[in-house]
Design a protein around this nucleic acid. Structure first.
Lengths: 201, 201, 201, 201
DNA sequence: AATGAATGAGTCTTCATTCAT
DNA sequence: TATGAATGAAGACTCATTCAT
């Protein structure tokens, strides 16, 4: 305790515990879904007794909501950071390719958090569904924008509906959730080739 | 009943009840996952008391396994029937297009059964995972074959790995699980266009 | 059914089934007690479906009562037959020794039936306790008579209360319920020697 | 509580609850056997709700095992304490007599605990049988030693097998489980007289 | 004489949650 | 900041029993 000066970078003990809980929750939720995840297991994974969770989260649903937010935000942030770091000269195609790689990378790097979001989605209690849908839609919108830019560039077939295609691509990519990290490059290339097939080498 | 001859088409009372249970189970499992599905709810959906389930299935796991088998088989059968009914002159492209439509059609027609299979997969207890994985693999193999035939015909880019692509397509299509039936045609066209983009109009 | 003449010695099909049920019930009751015995197991042991028991017995309690009566009666009958078959010249000591051997013999020959009676006694529902106690008392009385006769003959210490001793002997003998048949003779001799120790070789 | 020093004599709240549960379990098990004892009844007898039992015992079997251990240990301890407190000058006969009285006393003082052990023994699930058998054998061995000492002293007929006799005596004594306390003296005398009949006044 | 189908009450057990400490 | 002790509701599953066949 020792009344030290607290820097922003040094997380509180409470904050560290909270993160351990979120990690454990993601781990369990990814594997057992909402209904199959018990707080006992979450607590055990965070080296805590069950009631201690209530110091950090008011209820199971609040914990689940926080876990999902954590997962979505980190994936979104990753893609946005990746795009932002591209040189201004990057073409729509470069941006699309980078997004694909970033999405696959997020899935392998934060496997449990991504998996929790993807797999729990439909088994959520109605209270949590609404929030999830909004998040999902804004993510689809991000991809639709990327695709539209590529279509404007004639890199992707302009006939295809960008929204439909965005949903298809996200669903397809999510199928590689459990793929080993070393296949990321291959999948990324394959998917990009598919989207841009027959146009500009 | 009175000593009548039983035709194959007249299901037993037990068979009818069993099917009601499977339908109800699919409904619940699709919405709440394995861990979130209670036998009480399944029974209620089949107009039965909970213990009556045990006359037809020995345990929750056996019921879930039967539900999954039901779902997979009906989708597989649908695709295979569709392909079989195509004229012998049908090209690999026709077959691929027909499969896409059949998959989407199965998802909308047997929504709950398909959804149960797709959504439960990862939250299954380990005992049931094995069976599921085998089914899944044989389904992926079916699609890989369709794709390879199209590649031989130069309709799909031969550079792309057929297995990877099959997984991607299935994942992408499954994303339309909840899409309204009237969009099936649009999605089907879009996906086919995507796969064959830039080749033979 | 073939309208045959029925002799007293040829048991009806129903009678045979009933006996199979009683045997199976004794087997289960001896091993699991009243509360631990399920009718399903009893039926299985008699090669029947559970509801079929109700054709022969109106309820679980009636079946249990019949099983106990069966067990007690057969043991009582065995001892009485043994005593009756002794020559009129048999001494009280001979009769006592014969009874001991008969009791031990009944326990090994009709092991399950004897065990059911002995072990279930205290775990019975109150409705059945009464009947059991009456049977028990008349059995103790039989032994008290045998002991009193031996005391009159100065073969057993006349100072000892015959009732107390009868209870002790029965309890002691019942402890050998699971003893292997080949030890019957040894136990029988030991017990008789104990009762008559120091008197008339 | 207020930061007090905990003495060994002051049992924890948990320890007190645990003992109440054990007492209630003994009460129920003695009357209804393993299969007939419901945790609901045990909890009620301990002024608890059923699930609260699981804070103290992980399962029904663990509770039953603890109850049996409790019963056996307390009886064993009682006899051993009694023997230890005898003056060094006590003869084998004195020791045997004291053991008989101690066994009967334990049965009346800790009636339920003793009865639970005695009556449940045979209806136990196989998992618990093993432990019980070991306890039983060491108890028989204790008695066999006492008897052998008395035989060496010619107080008990040396011809008789000490092991067989020990089993017989324990079984016989256990028959008095439900005897009223005021008969303990009479039974004790009777049994001792029986064992030593015809020898040394 | 026996069974197939079903059920209400009850089994053991786990759940999310509370609250005093 | 965390835990020890407890609980009401619900979980899957088994029970004895019924009744039409």
């Amino acid at each position: 305790m020792s009344a030290g000066v607290r820097r922003a970078e040094e997380p509180t003990k409470a904050e560290r515990t909270r993160q351990r809980i979120l990690d454990s929750a993601a781990h369990e939720l990814a594997r057992h879904g909402y209904g199959g995840t018990s707080l006992r297991a979450v607590a055990a994974g965070a080296d805590l007794q069950m009631p201690s969770l209530y110091f950090h989260f008011a209820s199971k649903d609040e914990l689940v909501a926080a876990t999902m937010a954590d997962g979505i935000e980190s994936t979104l942030a990753r893609i946005q950071d990746t795009l932002r770091e591209l040189p201004p000269t990057a073409s729509p195609g470069d941006r699309l390719q980078a997004a694909i790689t970033a999405h696959l990378g997020a899935m392998t790097d934060h496997h449990d958090h991504a998996a929790a979001v993807i797999r729990m989605s439909t088994t959520l209690p109605t209270a949590l569904q609404r929030t999830h849908h909004l998040n999902e839609q804004s993510y689809v919108a991000l991809w639709a924008d990327l695709i539209r830019a590529a279509q404007a560039d004639e890199l992707v077939d302009p006939e295809v509906d960008a929204g439909v295609l965005a949903g298809f691509v996200i669903g397809g990519l999510n199928g590689y959730l459990d793929a080993p990290p070393e296949r990321v490059a291959e999948v990324s290339t394959t998917v990009f080739a598919l989207l841009t097939a027959g146009r500009r080498a």
